[in-house]
């Protein structure tokens, strides 16, 4: 990695902090540690981080609170570490502005994959690509055209909007309610089965094996994610 980048790890458990630190340093990150939320916010304010890793269960304040606070002044990616299996907490954190989450326990491989995914996304967002290619599917955004194996694929307007929403946020989990709001508008938040049926249509049209998708992934109880 050519550019040196800062990451702040806010986590109260020293063991977890230490292996996260080691793993990230091997990848060329400069790691600043904070053992509580207050310290974390101070570090976040003065270190100009490129990534924030936050544990949701901190002793002094709720992780969601930190994310909200941080989002007031920064758009830098936020990755959540959560020991909680409660889906609602994750959704709250995602809706508060977090980009992705890792459920404890996690391996180094998973950690680094998520870190790469959220930071790559940031680079991409800087200059929105005209073309997105995944698997054997090619999407031309200005042309509004989708091809698979070089053949044109017909998508309905809703399917297309949903697909664009997902591919312009690669690697990021989009909560159900957010997708419903962005694609259908604020009045349809109740009928989430529409979202599921349209996701199924998209998979039928774009995935090799719709029941074992590789790109249009479901995060059960939370939402959907696109992986290129």
């Amino acid at each position: 990695m050519s550019v040196i980048k800062n990451v702040i790890v806010i986590e109260d458990e020293p063991q977890i902090r230490s292996f996260v630190k080691e793993a990230l340093e091997n990848e060329g990150w400069i790691v600043f540690e904070a053992e509580n939320g207050k310290r974390g916010l101070i570090e976040a304010g003065c270190r100009k981080p490129d990534l924030l890793i936050v544990d949701l269960g901190l002793p002094d304040m709720d992780g969601v609170h930190i994310i909200k606070e941080f989002r007031n002044w920064s758009a830098v990616p936020v990755l959540i570490l959560s020991a909680r299996t409660e889906e609602t907490t994750k959704i709250t954190a995602l809706d508060a502005g977090a980009d992705d989450y890792l459920t404890k326990p996690f391996g180094i491989g998973e950690l680094l994959a998520r870190v790469r995914a959220v930071t790559r996304r940031r680079l991409q967002a800087a200059d929105a690509p005209a073309k997105v290619i995944f698997g054997n599917v090619e999407i031309d955004l200005p042309q509004h055209s989708v091809t698979r194996h070089g053949q044109a694929v017909h998508l309905t307007p809703i399917e297309y909007r949903l697909l664009v929403m997902l591919i312009t946020n690669p690697g990021k989990i989009l909560s159900q309610s957010r997708l419903m709001k962005e694609v259908w508008g604020p009045n349809h938040a109740e009928s989430s089965h529409y979202l599921r049926i349209y996701m199924s249509h998209l998979r039928q049209k774009l995935e090799n094996d719709p029941a074992q998708p590789e790109h249009l992934l479901t995060e059960i109880g939370v939402g959907y994610r696109f992986e290129s």
Partner: peptide, 12 residues
């Protein structure tokens, strides 16, 4: 929490 440490450290 300790399991996370265990998985992470052994993984590294």
């Amino acid at each position: 929490t300790p399991l996370t440490g265990l998985v992470g450290m052994s993984d590294s």
